[in-house]
Each structure stands twice: as C-alpha cells, then as structure tokens.
C-alpha cells in the first residue's frame, strides 16, 4: 500500500558532517586548508621559535640560508633573522587579513542589506555612495587614507577595511534583492516580525554563504594591500611584516635575493591558500551542488 505522507525520511547527518564531506571532495581546497593551518601555526608558535624581538640583530648581516643554524633562513642586511621575520610576519598578515575583512564585511553587509531590503530611495542613496567609492582606485584611496591617518598598524587595518567594502556591499545587496521577494520573508512579515529581525535573522543567514566565500578573497586582497603598503615603506615599521621584509630586501635584491624571495613565497602561499579555501567553501556551501 502507498505509504502515508506523514512518514518521515531517515534523519540526515548533522550539518557540519555534511559540510566536511562536501568540502573534502575538492582536493585543491584541502591543500588550501593545510597551508592555512600551517600559516596559523606559524603565527601561534612565533614566540616559541624565536622568543626575542624579530627586529633585533641575530647574526652577521647577509648570512645566506642554511649556513648558520642559529639563523636557518639567513639574515638580512641589518643582521635580522629571516625565519623569525617570516613567523612574526604571519601574525601581522593574519591579523590584518582577519580584522580588515571583518571591517569590510561589516560595512558591506549593513549597507548592502539596507539597500537591498528597502530598495527605493534608500537603495539609490546608498548605491551612489558605493559607486563614489568604487570610482577611486582602491590603492590610491588606501594611500590617501594612510597619509591622513598615519601608518600605525590599527589605522592601516581600518583603512584596508574601508577601501574593500564596496564589492561585498553590492553582493549583499543583490542577494537581499532576490531573497526579499521569497515567500519565507512574506511569511515572517505575516507573523509580525519587525524589519530589523527580518533583515538580520531571516534573510542574512540565507545570504551568508556567498559572503563567507567572498570573505576569503578579501582576506587575500587585504594581505596583498598591506604588503604593497609596506613595500612602499608606508607600513608600520615597528612590526616585522612580510611586506616590510620585501621592501627592505629590495635594496639587496641582486646580491642576496633570498631576503625578498622568502617572504614573497610566504605571501604567495598564504594568498593561494585563501583562494583555494574560498573555492572549497563555495563548493561546500553551494546547495546546487548537493546532488551529483
């Protein structure tokens, strides 16, 4: 006999398990995760690897790598240890990546959500502002902001966040515009839920997957922006950052290329890991790929 409609299908495994299964399918994303974990470990263990100040003199200037075991990756022209620079640099890069991304996403979500949900003149005003920001090249705006605010690490992070919010804002707006017409939003309104709760509790969780994916791109971009600033000697000189190291290594590029190449490799791998991570997240969070 036909089964009754009320019989339930067997329960699904918890969401995290499903998520991990889907993420695991993408080999490149696994590689990205591994590199990311290594970078995080480097940031966490920087103090153990070299308990001192990474900017202090650790050996003879311009010792090549793999010669002296006190400084395994060599030293730069001021005798600073490249290995501890790379480890401490991971801290700065990750810190800037995470905080700047949070700033950018926070601004972007609020502006995009308001514009997308309310539409009409709110949308017009907010989008004109967004476009005004978008017409100025990112890096030029960043240079201007740093010139005004000064090159303390907090200001640099904030400035990077401020120049990166436009893309997530537009994306969130598009998501909200398509989601606000969905019936579950009407259903929530019909229950008497307030606008604020609809925006943040009903629509936002549904709009999150593409935002999370895009966050990984912003993180990679923020790290690159910070390195570019440091390369132009506009970074915070009190911290060993990868950009600073490359900027200073530039002077001895012909005689001791490793001073610039090693932090360069660190940047490449970190940015690569974020972009692979983003791809994996996209696969895992994108429900259209559910069946295959």
């Amino acid at each position: 006999m036909t089964s009754l409609d009320t019989d339930l299908s067997p329960a699904e495994p918890p969401r995290l398990v499903v998520f991990w299964r889907r993420y695991r399918r993408n080999r490149a994303a696994l590689l990205g995760l591994v590199i990311f974990v290594i970078v995080v470990l480097m940031a966490l263990t920087a103090g153990l690897v070299d308990p001192g100040d990474p900017l202090r003199r650790a050996g003879d200037p311009l010792t090549p790598p793999f010669v002296d075991w006190a400084t395994p990756l060599g030293t730069d022209q001021l005798g600073r240890d490249v290995l501890s620079g790379v480890f401490y640099g991971a801290r700065i890069s990750l810190l800037i990546g995470v905080v700047a991304t949070l700033v950018a996403i926070a601004i972007g979500v609020v502006i995009g959500a308001l514009a997308g949900y309310f539409g009409g003149w709110v949308d017009d005003v907010l989008m004109r502002v967004t476009e005004a920001f978008q017409t100025i090249p990112n890096f030029v705006l960043l240079l201007t902001l740093v010139a005004i605010l000064g090159s303390k690490i907090e200001w640099i992070t904030l400035a990077i966040g401020i120049v990166s919010w436009t893309a997530p804002a537009r994306m969130v707006r598009a998501e909200f515009m398509s989601l606000r017409g969905r019936e579950f939003v009407d259903a929530a309104r019909n229950l008497g839920v307030s606008n604020t709760a609809i925006i943040f509790k009903e629509i936002l969780p549904n709009a999150l997957p593409p935002i999370v994916v895009y966050a990984s791109v912003i993180m990679a971009l923020s790290i690159l922006l910070e390195s570019a600033l440091a390369f132009l000697a506009l970074g915070d000189p009190n911290y060993a950052s990868w950009g600073n190291m490359i900027g200073q290594g530039r002077a001895v590029l012909r005689s001791a290329p490793y001073c610039a190449v090693i932090p360069g490799i660190a940047i490449v791998l970190t940015v690569l890991s974020f972009s692979l991570l983003g791809e994996g997240l996209n696969d895992a969070l994108n429900p259209r790929q559910k069946k295959q």
Partner: peptide
C-alpha cells in the same frame, strides 16, 4: 490573520529548525 503559502519550500526559512519556525510567531508576540 495568518497565511498558508503556495510553495511550502519557499515559505519556510531553510536555515531554521521546524520547532523554531512554528514557535517564531508566538515568540514575536
């Protein structure tokens, strides 16, 4: 005045558990 919608998939927030979906109305009120 409450409503039952045409498309039950579209009218239930996919990120909420059933119990929260049903209890949402009374909690809001």
């Amino acid at each position: 005045i409450q409503m039952v919608f045409q498309d039950p998939m579209a009218s239930l927030n996919p990120r909420k558990r059933v119990v929260d979906l049903i209890a949402q109305g009374p909690i809001v009120h």
